[in-house]
Amino acid sequence: MGDIRLIEVKEEILADNIKVAAGVRERLQKAKTMLLNLMSSPGSGKTSLILRTVEGLKGSLRLGVIEADIDSTVDAEKVAARGIPAIQLRTGGFCHLDATMVTQGIDAMAVNEFDLVIIENVGNLVCPAEFDTGAHKNVMILSVPEGDDKPFKYPLMFSICDLLLVNKIDYLSLSDFDMAALRGRVLALNPRITILEVSCKTGAGIEGWIDWLKAEVAAFKGLK
């Protein structure tokens, strides 16, 4: 048995991803295309929200979608069926998107032709929070049936997002979900976050989301 030596490593594990993400952000900044990373648990309403967004933005912003649903191409097809360019990424069973995978999506679309590209990230609240996709804005959905205690379980996700959409508010009357408590918990983790309440089913609150999007894209393009 030899002696034990100490070797200096000094490497940031996420360094590669951080670098690629910064490159994506810069490239899209030049193209004046805002990239938005949409995250949530499976079934919270990401695809439903994108379909609502397609409707709500009709005639105002040019929208593209990058789909990373691990199940199938169903989501990209649903979006494409509405006449919106959608790219399906094969995440190879991964539980999150990283910036390299996003680069593949962007390479496959003519980014200059869009004002806004939305990524539907893989459904989970842990890994997507750790991996920067290169997006300019991070948005998460929490749906009412998931409960108001999620900020305790997934604090990092709530900390990194610019906007929280509380979806499925049509369920509020059927549950003991405490909206005021949720707001308090989320703002304690992230005071800069905007919180909007919506229902992709009834359409309640969707206008507020569309207004937020338009204002953010305008600010991004330096029009405001």
Binding site: I7, V9, P191
Partner: peptide, 20 residues
């Protein structure tokens, strides 16, 4: 002041290792 910028807290850093 209430506004601040995160300096650290999200890192995954390999500092060193012991080998033979």
């Amino acid at each position: 002041e209430k506004d601040g910028t995160l300096l650290s807290g999200r890192e995954y850093y390999i500092k060193e290792m012991e080998v033979q």
